[in-house]
Write a protein that binds this DNA or RNA. Structure first.
Length: 461
RNA sequence: GGCGCGAUAGCAAAGCGGUUAUGCACUGGAUUGCAAAUCCACGUAGGCCGGUUCGACUCCGGCUCGCGCCUCCA
């Protein structure tokens, strides 16, 4: 079998993957800051690392997959304040919403989902360590800052030169910092804000320290893979490296993986631009599996353009896959190895899902052309197994075609069945006009009829 | 301005120094009462200019254009 290669942001190259511990992978992925609904950009990371995790497990790795929830943050406080709502009531709501979105998209739950608020002790002790080692200092007001220039190699992940950064940094606003590049590990609480007690007084953690604390706590000083969205490279991940490596004196992460951006009209989808589509919005029109297919149809590192047209295309493609499985009773047999090998070598090459999908389509074509029942069964079984590694084709084909994506699902199933029965009678009477009238009537409701040799089936277009 | 990434057929998206990617759409045929689905047939694409090579979409250099990061963002 081909060896697993993955693109490491740290080196800028595709590298052969070597786990720290034979057969095991410890992976941390940056999750959500929970103050709003997840958008398609989040879905990209969720689905992307879900597929990665599924494949790594498929090829035999014991994967510990940690994805944090950042539930203390300036934006959370700001939003809670706007709403006149307690910050933890707000985060609880959006954590639940996030879990709903994930269940809809069929992503496997992470091994653990640590929350910043549950790791205050670790956050504070890591901050203390950084102060002891001279990498951080407490300001007069109770803030604690990280001394960026003290850390050798700052910028190595995002390939930034510290001098370039400095020239662009805003100076003068924060007199509390020794250097404008320094970033906050701990922020003193302002009047009326929620706070935690610390050696520096009442306050809360800065943005980056919680990930260093949680990842180290859950996975150890050094772990295999750290992933996240493209906009986390700098400063978030850069700062995590600075914090963790300064605190532990050890390499923080061996392989850094970053998903590509989701764009809308050639612009990055982002909170700040306000051009984002939430997962739940999209799911009103398209089935979750179509969204997953769309996200899988390009390699996880490339940027993709979100549009209705691309989702519609994804649906057509996925329909083709399900169509090939429709009406088959599939029983477990040995897999067709040639397809399995091609699939695996595609996925071993930095998770090349577009090629993996191409293999699935070759399988679909072979399946559609096969005459022999045993051969059909083997191809269908192989198709389902491999697609399952991508989290696809896990539904019953009939259910897939009959599902109503919107809340008002249009025509009810029994009405459809009744019309089909009427049409069947008309056909038996060779009343083609009536038969076609019913077909057209259903077509107007988005129902497509397929007359097969074993009767008529229907699906929603 | 600094750093990084990309430019493939109508659209989307891959691999590859010389041999069909794949999907969607389109067209013709088979099939069907009519359709749908399916099958068969159908595409010499690779931003521009040089270089290396027997041969480059694939390697090297330059240019143009697009995008991302440099500030909160997945």
């Amino acid at each position: 079998m081909s060896e697993l290669k993955l693109f490491n942001t740290l080196t800028g190259k595709k590298e052969v993957f070597k786990p720290i511990e034979e057969g095991k992978i410890r992976m941390y992925v940056c999750g959500m800051t929970v103050y709003d609904y997840c958008h398609i950009g989040h879905a990209r990371v969720m689905v992307g690392f879900d597929v990665i995790t599924r494949f790594l497990r498929h090829i035999g790795y014991d994967v510990t997959y940690i994805r944090n929830i950042t539930d203390v943050d300036d934006k959370i406080f700001a939003r809670a304040n706007e709403n006149g709502e307690a910050f933890d009531a707000l985060t609880e709501r959006f954590i639940n919403a996030m879990h709903e979105d994930e269940r809809a998209l069929g992503t496997l739950p992470p091994t653990q989902e640590p929350r910043a608020t549950e790791h205050m002790g670790n956050i504070i002790s890591m901050t203390e360590t950084l102060i002891e080692k001279g990498f951080a200092y407490a300001a007069d007001n109770g803030d604690v800052y990280y001394r960026v220039k003290k850390f050798d190699g700052y910028g190595k992940l995002s390939k930034k030169n510290i001098d370039d950064l400095q020239s662009g940094a805003r100076v003068g606003i924060e007199e509390l910092k020794e250097d404008p590049l320094d970033f906050a590990l701990w922020k003193a609480a302002k009047e009326g804000e929620a706070y935690w007690d610390s050696p520096w007084g009442k306050g809360r953690p800065g943005w980056h320290i919680e990930c260093s604390a949680m990842s180290t706590c859950c996975l150890g000083n050094t772990f295999d893979i750290h992933g996240g969205g493209p906009d986390l490279k700098f400063p978030h991940h850069e700062n995590e490296i600075a914090q963790s490596e300064a605190a532990t004196g050890e390499t923080y992460v061996n392989y850094w993986m970053h998903a590509g951006a989701v764009r809308v009209n050639k612009e990055k989808m982002s909170k700040s631009l306000g051009n984002f589509f939430t997962i739940r919005e999209v799911l009103e029109k398209y089935s979750p599996e179509v969204v997953r297919y769309f996200l899988t149809s390009s390699q996880y590192r490339s940027q993709i353009d979100y549009s209705e047209a691309s989702l519609a295309e994804a649906q057509s493609a996925l329909d083709r896959m399900y169509q090939s499985l429709r009406g088959l009773e599939i029983s477990e047999v040995d897999l067709e190895v040639s397809y399995v090998d091609r699939f695996k070598s595609a996925m071993c090459d930095d998770f090349n899902t577009p090629v993996a999908l191409a293999v699935l389509f070759d399988l679909v074509k072979a399946l559609n052309s096969a005459k022999d029942a045993a051969e059909k069964n083997q191809l269908a079984f192989t198709l389902k197994q491999l697609a399952g590694v991508l989290g696809l084709l896990e539904s019953d084909p009939d259910a897939y075609f009959k599902q109503a994506p919107t809340q008002d699902g249009g025509l009810a199933e029994d009405e459809i069945e009744a019309l089909i029965a009427q049409r069947l009678q008309a056909r038996a009477d060779k009343n083609w006009a009536e038969s076609d009238r019913i077909r057209d009537e259903l077509a107007e409701q988005g129902i497509v009829l397929d007359d097969g040799k074993d009767g008529t089936t229907w699906r929603r277009a």
